[in-house]
Design a protein around this nucleic acid. Structure first.
Lengths: 202, 202, 202, 202
DNA sequence: GATGAATGAGAATTCATTCAT
DNA sequence: GATGAATGAATTCTCATTCAT
């Protein structure tokens, strides 16, 4: 009764109302924080009524969960794509590392919410999100380990730590990146990937 | 009338009540998030009444601000210390970079709150905190720039970005570091400082 | 978001709940004073919950503002009516002066609140109410001035003062008038209008 | 235990602290209203601590009661003085009517509180204040009745009503009189007394 | 599908007063 | 005399959610 009802899976043919609600909620959550954003604000900003929101989403928490789902699906897809190209491991890691930066900047609201509000999910949903994040982390770590095993990367630092090292910088983007700043998303991505690769030079 | 009243400046001889309240609030904010922690919970856990809390702190927001003040004062002091030692710049940067990691882990509650809740400060206090963070950032950046100018560090990546790169990993510690994990704070610090220094090798 | 939401404009087809709340609040404000009347008391007496009150009124202050709006609209309408009749100016002034007395007595709760609680309105609403009162005052003064210009009234006392003189006695009604006293509202009105007219005899 | 302890009778040799507290409270009550003025504000503005206030006054209500006592004593004294002069009754009424206007303007804070806050007194003190007001009213009415009996004043309007008529205008002074306006207190007083006397012409 | 009035539990904050020192 | 820390009850207001229409 309180679970996601429809909410609009990424590629679904759902009513634009659900998508508008989710987009509005995402913006407001990023701007004000989840707890500071009332359901009334969301529906007012989306131009619908509360009944409509509760028609599409089982609860406010569901909206947050949708944001997580969207981010996780997107990043996992992209990581899978880059990690399974036939390129040398340095290239695959560089591509994946840079891509997550670009994608994060391009969805900075999602990312801001992602890193700031995970502790606000209901325990059940939190568990689910953690599991998906772990899967993502492990795929990324596998790339690092492959390079370490094959001698392409320095092997004296735990691969887990290296993954968190890079994701720290991704996590942090929402804190400092501004679209009107001096660097394009791609430039930031190239720099950060370069720093990662240099840090891994044997 | 509504500002911080006393709250316990660092070295004061203030009553234990204010300190107990702040310690309790810090723990609860880190565990549950600021907005999810009620004033009632704080005073119950601290064993006092709401009146006592409001005797010492002008508002719930003040408690949060105190946490920020404590973190900022501590980190700035430590950075100033390491940055002004007479050692070569590589050493100074390594020391400062490792120290902030250790200090962050040792005050992980503070740090968790710091990175997660800055957007919840009142605009006025947010402004003040941002100003202090900027000062910290600039001092750290000066170290990087010094090394770049003197040819000790690679100069093809903006110093600002490098600072954010490192602080991303610090920021991220609260997300993954566990006291019962395989690495001591010092080991994490050494690894992260090593990664930074390697990334900066010319 | 915090302004008056509906509250029951004069001639609307609004739900009885809002009207019941306003009537209850008016009574309690007159009996106990605005600050001494809690929102809880109002909703208990009206048989609804706080949520309902805040559904219709943005704040407790809004309720007070509604009382002011109601009084001002009523008195302005009546003054406009009497002042623009074709009668001689003595008659018009006498009619208007007597009518405001009768109307005030018939809405003595409103009037009590009006004169006692204006300083409790929020600055913004206070400003608005003052503007409307000034308009009312000026219309009344115009009657006095017309009589003074045409020699019907004594002209050696400022018209403004005369208006305040009469409204002082209206203002004061709440302090002494009792429905079970010896005089009917109309008798009081006739006496007070007579006193005013006598005072104005040239 | 909660009664007035000392508070400073008018001409006493009490500590200046009590007088400063009362003066400060009077100003704040007039500016903000009794209920909106906190004990903390009063002591802050008076430069003392709460302990001091509760040393001199049994309660916040006592402060209000003191204001009433001061006003009532003063006005009763002055009325007694003017009413018992040997002058003709028209002169005695005119003098008394003008004097209460001047005295009220000169103590406008007291008067503002007087008329606005009587309903906030504790029942016991309210009763006492009402008794003193009645005494005052009756003395004033006696003047009017004397004139009516002796044919100096019109007798077709109840004397009680005439007293309330005049006191309405006094009551109202706090609403409109401004020290920087065009009329001096004495001018206002002369005008209002003149209006009263004219209204009473047979 | 959609509305919006109404709920009820809980939020932060205020404040007159007391009392150990 | 005077302090100011502490109390505890009350205050205004918020909000996710439900449900009759």
């Amino acid at each position: 009764m309180a679970g996601t009802k429809d909410g609009g899976g990424v590629g679904g043919a759902t009513k634009p109302v659900a998508q508008r609600l989710l987009a509005t909620a995402t913006r407001l959550f990023a701007e004000q924080g989840y707890d500071r954003t009332s359901v009334q604000e969301i529906v007012d900003a989306a131009g619908v009524t509360k009944g409509a929101l509760y028609h599409y989403f089982g609860s406010k928490d569901d909206l947050l969960h949708e944001v997580y789902g969207r981010v996780l699906r997107l990043q996992q897809e992209r990581l899978d794509h880059f990690a399974s190209s036939g390129a040398p491991v340095e290239q695959r890691l560089r591509d994946a590392a840079a891509d997550v930066v670009v994608t994060t900047i391009e969805n900075l609201d999602d990312a801001t919410i992602f890193f700031r509000s995970m502790h606000l999910l209901s325990p059940e949903k939190d568990k689910q999100v953690r599991a998906e994040r772990r899967r993502y982390h492990e795929r990324f770590r596998a790339l690092v380990e492959e390079g370490q095993r094959t001698g392409v990367f320095a092997a004296d630092i735990p691969a887990d730590l290296i993954v968190d090292y890079h994701f720290g910088s991704v996590h942090h983007l929402g804190t400092w990146y501004r679209a009107d700043g001096p660097l394009t998303p791609q430039q930031v991505a190239d720099h950060l990937a370069e720093l990662l690769l240099r840090a891994l030079r044997p």
